[in-house]
Amino acid sequence: MTTPTELPPHIPCGCPLVAVYGTLRRGGSNDIRRWQSDVRWLGHCRLPGQLYDLGHYPGLILDGSCKVLAEVYELTPRLERELDRVEEVWPVDIGEYAKRIIDVELLPLDGGDPRPVQVLVYEAQPAGVHERALIDDDDWLGWWTRQER
């Protein structure tokens, strides 16, 4: 039995990269550098899915319908633990997102050739996007800045 002050152990997924598509992107309200200032940005990728408007942040369903812009970063166990906390999959999983490891093509910042990589993605769960508006854009951060709020 655990006491309220004990946290369950955090178990890293083992993926060395993470792809972020919403508030965790550079300039977003939860810019990934907030959680690890020296995180290494490697480039961009396109995630096969559809964005949904969840208020002040997006949800992505990996259904292959669109190609959503994401930033790819190196992932350390410490950073993953912080991201899991932000996305509320740890220490208590509220069921809004699930962690998925998918294959994408990395478009490196240095202009090198695209290459296949595996990335961790926080995917919205279907119940969380039910009756939410689809975002008709492949770039959530760009879409968000154009909205009248």
Rank of each mutant, 00 (worst) to 15 (best):
R78A: 15
A19C: 12
V18W: 08
D63W: 12
H130F: 02
I94T: 14
G27M: 09
T23W: 01
D84Q: 03
V18Q: 06
E82F: 07
P91N: 12
R40C: 11
Q125H: 05
L69M: 09
Y73V: 00
Q147I: 07
E123G: 04
R85A: 13
R149I: 06
I102E: 03
V104M: 01
G59D: 06
C66L: 08
V121C: 01
P91W: 11
H56W: 09
G59I: 07
W143F: 07
D93E: 07
R132F: 06
E87K: 14
P108H: 11
R146A: 08
A124P: 02
G43R: 03
R78Q: 15
L54Q: 02
I32K: 01
L83K: 06
P12K: 13
D103N: 10
Q50K: 07
L141C: 03
Y21G: 10
R46A: 15
L83C: 10
E74I: 02
G49S: 06
M1S: 15
G142M: 06
R81G: 02
R34P: 00
L75N: 03
L7P: 04
T23H: 07
D103I: 02
L79Q: 08
C15N: 14
S65G: 14
G28C: 02
R146K: 07
C45N: 09
D136G: 02
G55Q: 10
G28N: 06
R26W: 00
Y52L: 06
T3H: 13
D31H: 01
P48G: 15
T23E: 04
D31I: 01
H44Q: 14
L7D: 10
R25D: 03
L106P: 01
